[in-house]
Each structure stands twice: as structure tokens, then as C-alpha cells.
Amino acid sequence: MNNKTALIIGAGDAIGSAIARKFAGRGYTICAARRNGDKLTPLVEEIEATGGNAYAFTCDARKEDQIENLFAEIESNIGELDVVVFNVGANVPMGILQTDSRKFFKIWEMACFAGFLSGREAARYMTKRNRGTILFTGATASVRGSAGFAAFASAKHGLRALAQSMARELGPKNIHVGHIVIDAAVDTAWIQQMLPDYKQRKDNDGVVNPDDLAELYVQMHEQPRSAWTFELDVRPWTEKW
């Protein structure tokens, strides 16, 4: 049983994988979960190649039984969770007239309901030990609803409210709950294709580097409890806000 274990739910190819690598570099055993766990093989191999320990899990964070089983397996067979990061994305732009109820509900499930399930399950284990960190990944939509993002903004607003409530309830129990607002484009394959001025922005530090962003998650987890941060608001130096 390793006494330093981190779970990243939504361990995608950019932000999630970067967070996993950063915690692995601090000596944490990494548990990475996403809907298609087979896609995590390169990440696990990379961490193990540098002497770390990593495990891949297939999990749909919208499904209560799958989240419960994920936490139970890790706690029973790998180690007590010190930090849990909820990083599931659902950034799907669509106009309000094109947003049917099925699409709205699915985006809410992914970006908000899944965060509730993950946060609640993390709290169930951490409150027994009176220690731990739970971090939620937010977005511009967490604080500002833009045109064409009604479903996503409503879900991200809800996730932020969930995190605020959990922070107030769990802080006195020595559990640090935090929310990271990423108010900018993150350097991903999708952004590289979508931004016509990507290269210029990249060369000028105008897009968020996933590795730099991941460092902030580690810093929040390592903060002394006399000076905990609830929310970080992150953007490149060139971003207008």
C-alpha cells in the first residue's frame, strides 16, 4: 500500500495527463481514469519508464456504480487517496435553438453531475481520515455564460457551486477543496487546429501550457492549511479579460 496516491478522473491527453505526470514526479502513485481506459496506455508507460507507479481505469464518471467501484478498488488494492482531481470536459458549443434536451442533459451529466459523484465519493473516504484534497477543473464558462454555450455554462456554473459548498463543509474537516478556472485556450491538438494564429500565440506564451497548468494543481494540494486557496483564475499573460 502506497501512502501517496492521486486519482485523476478525466485523464485526457492534455490537461489530465499533465496533472498525472506532475503528481508522479512528486512520488505519487497515479490512478488515471477515463471512459476509454485503453487510451491511457502511453501515459502509464511513460510514468513507469521514469520509475513511477501508474494504473489505468476505464470509468464513465456519469455512472454512480462505476465511480463507487473505482474508488473502492483503489482504496482496497492500491492506496489511500490523498488527492482526487475531477477533470472531465464537456465543452461543446451549440446555439440555444440547436440544444435539445438530450444534449443539454448529457453535457450537464458530464460536467456537473459526474463532478458531484466524484467529489462525494472522495469525501466519503477522506472524511474518515480527516485529510485529503479534492480539485475541480473549471473554465471560462464557470463564471461567464458566452453565446452558444448555454448548456456548458450552466453545467460549469453548477460544478463551481458544488465545489464552493464542499469547500465550506469539508474545510473544517481538514479536506482542501479547490476549483481552477482556466480562462483561456489550452495547448491541445484541437486548439492547434482551431486557432488560425496558433503558432504565433504558442511562440509568445499565448496559450496555456498543460505542464505549467498541472504545476498549479500540485501547488494547491501542497498548500499549508493556514493559507488554503479555494479558487485559482488562470490565463496567459496576453489574454484579455
Results as ranks from 00 to 15, higher is better:
residue 19 I to W: 13
residue 241 W to S: 02
residue 67 I to P: 13
residue 60 D to H: 04
residue 100 D to R: 14
residue 130 N to A: 07
residue 201 R to M: 00
residue 164 Q to N: 14
residue 66 Q to P: 15
residue 218 V to R: 06
residue 89 G to F: 08
residue 149 F to G: 01
residue 27 G to K: 05
residue 126 M to T: 05
residue 236 P to H: 13
residue 90 A to N: 06
residue 138 G to E: 01
residue 90 A to C: 07
residue 193 Q to A: 15
residue 210 P to K: 08
residue 128 K to M: 12
residue 65 D to F: 13
residue 229 T to R: 04
residue 143 V to C: 10
residue 128 K to R: 13
residue 74 I to N: 09
residue 171 G to M: 08
residue 228 W to I: 05
residue 220 M to Q: 14
residue 1 M to Q: 02
residue 184 A to T: 12
residue 8 I to D: 02
residue 213 L to N: 08
residue 35 R to H: 14
residue 213 L to V: 04
residue 136 F to W: 05
residue 219 Q to I: 10
residue 36 N to R: 15
residue 185 A to C: 13
residue 13 D to G: 10
residue 40 L to A: 15
residue 21 R to D: 10
residue 180 I to C: 01
residue 18 A to E: 14
residue 154 S to M: 09
residue 18 A to P: 14
residue 72 A to W: 09
residue 15 I to M: 11
residue 72 A to N: 11
residue 10 G to H: 00
residue 61 A to W: 04
residue 88 V to C: 10
residue 164 Q to R: 15
residue 240 K to W: 03
residue 193 Q to K: 05
residue 65 D to A: 12
residue 175 I to Q: 11
residue 216 L to S: 05
residue 180 I to M: 04
residue 127 T to W: 08
residue 229 T to V: 07
residue 89 G to R: 13
residue 64 E to M: 07
residue 135 L to Y: 00
residue 234 V to S: 10
residue 77 N to G: 06
residue 100 D to P: 15
residue 40 L to F: 12
residue 4 K to F: 02
residue 186 V to E: 12
residue 2 N to D: 09
residue 157 H to L: 07
residue 190 W to H: 06
residue 129 R to A: 12
residue 120 R to D: 10
residue 60 D to T: 00
residue 217 Y to F: 08
residue 8 I to R: 00
residue 118 S to I: 08
residue 166 M to Y: 11
residue 84 V to C: 03
residue 219 Q to D: 14
residue 13 D to H: 09
residue 178 G to R: 04
residue 197 D to I: 03
residue 114 A to T: 07
residue 44 V to S: 14
residue 153 A to W: 05
residue 178 G to E: 09
residue 223 Q to D: 02
residue 196 P to K: 07
residue 96 I to T: 12
residue 186 V to I: 04
residue 2 N to E: 01
residue 182 I to P: 03
residue 147 A to W: 02
residue 193 Q to G: 14
residue 181 V to N: 08
residue 19 I to C: 11
residue 99 T to V: 10
residue 69 N to K: 15
residue 12 G to I: 04
residue 123 A to P: 09
residue 213 L to I: 04
residue 29 T to S: 06
residue 51 G to M: 13
residue 154 S to P: 14
residue 210 P to E: 13
residue 6 A to Q: 00
residue 76 S to A: 11
residue 93 P to T: 09
residue 28 Y to S: 05
residue 46 E to P: 08
residue 84 V to P: 04
residue 28 Y to M: 13
residue 13 D to M: 06
residue 55 Y to L: 09
residue 126 M to W: 10
residue 61 A to L: 06
residue 40 L to H: 15
residue 88 V to E: 03
residue 235 R to H: 12
residue 7 L to D: 00
residue 117 L to D: 00
residue 133 T to M: 00
residue 26 R to P: 11
residue 201 R to W: 07
residue 216 L to Y: 01
residue 162 L to F: 07
residue 117 L to W: 00
residue 32 A to S: 14
residue 151 A to R: 03
residue 89 G to Y: 14
